[in-house]
């Protein structure tokens, strides 16, 4: 039984149709990626799940309940970091942890460590680089005690040398906590490494062009250099 289900979801902004009837299912603990060109409606689909926009037609279900009636907090890392500039990095992460009912303060430290930000917890966002702010925003999303995580282009602007490590840590964390995650990405490397399934989308009005299942359950750094990785990447772009 799917944990999240997009059921014939049509999103429109005025007369502009962003998606055709979009159908997709995400199981508990599964990571999927919406991969497609800019403006194809990936973020709009995510916003429909977050109940930030109401689809013109169709519905989004979470655990058989309609998204607008789902009462739990959904972890969300938006494109623009939306860190609170008057709070320190640690306070930013703690806010989401506490608000989502996570009563384990050590989680904040663990996640800051995971994101290589342990030494910067006392700093305000304005004192961090763009990449660090992005990681902080990601840390905040991961600290949320949630069943669902929405990650909107989370690795953009993260330092090249750290990207693979962060991806690895992130996937491990999501899997360990059995979280259903939806990623939005333009980057095939991120999509292939992170996902269990990739939906390759067309330009708006969006349709699913391809569905690629990534079969390898265990992934480490060597996966990036494997033939399998290359073949999935080929499938995406072909």
């Amino acid at each position: 039984m799917a944990y999240i289900r997009f059921d014939n979801v049509v999103i429109k902004y005025g007369d502009h149709k962003v998606t055709h009837e979009f159908n997709c299912e995400i199981e508990k603990g599964q990571i999927i990626t919406l991969f497609g060109p800019s403006g194809c409606g990936k973020s709009s689909l995510m916003k429909a799940l977050l109940n930030l926009i109401v689809p013109g037609k169709g519905k989004v279900f979470i655990n058989t309940v309609e998204a607008d009636k789902y009462k739990y907090i959904i972890g969300y890392v938006p494109q623009d970091n939306q860190l609170l500039p008057w709070q320190t990095l640690r306070e930013n992460v703690d806010l989401w942890r506490k608000e989502s009912g996570n009563k384990k303060p050590f989680i904040t430290d663990d996640i800051l460590e995971l994101m290589e930000l342990a030494d910067h917890g006392h700093k305000h966002p304005s004192n961090l680089s763009g990449g660090m702010q992005r990681r902080a925003s990601l840390a905040r999303g991961l600290a949320t005690q949630t069943e669902i995580l929405c990650l909107d282009e989370v690795l953009v602007s993260i330092e090249r040398g750290l990207r693979k490590k962060i991806m690895m840590q992130m996937r491990k964390y999501i899997k360990k906590n059995n979280i259903s995650a939806i990623l939005i990405s333009h980057d095939y490397e991120e999509a292939v490494y992170m996902s269990d399934r990739i939906y390759v989308l067309s330009a708006a009005p969006t349709e699913i062009l391809k569905t690629i299942n990534i079969l390898e359950a265990e992934r480490d750094l060597s996966f990036f250099d494997s033939d399998a990785f290359e073949s999935y990447a080929q499938k995406m772009v072909s």
Binding site: K47, L52, P78, L84, W86, E99, C150
Partner: peptide
């Protein structure tokens, strides 16, 4: 700016005001 943020947290308007608007606009 923070509409999506607080919506995801399912905050009531008063909480939004106290936690975001007052300190952020100060």
């Amino acid at each position: 700016k923070y509409d999506a943020f607080t919506h995801a947290l399912k905050w009531k308007p008063w909480k939004y005001i106290i936690k975001i608007i007052i300190p952020g606009t100060a």
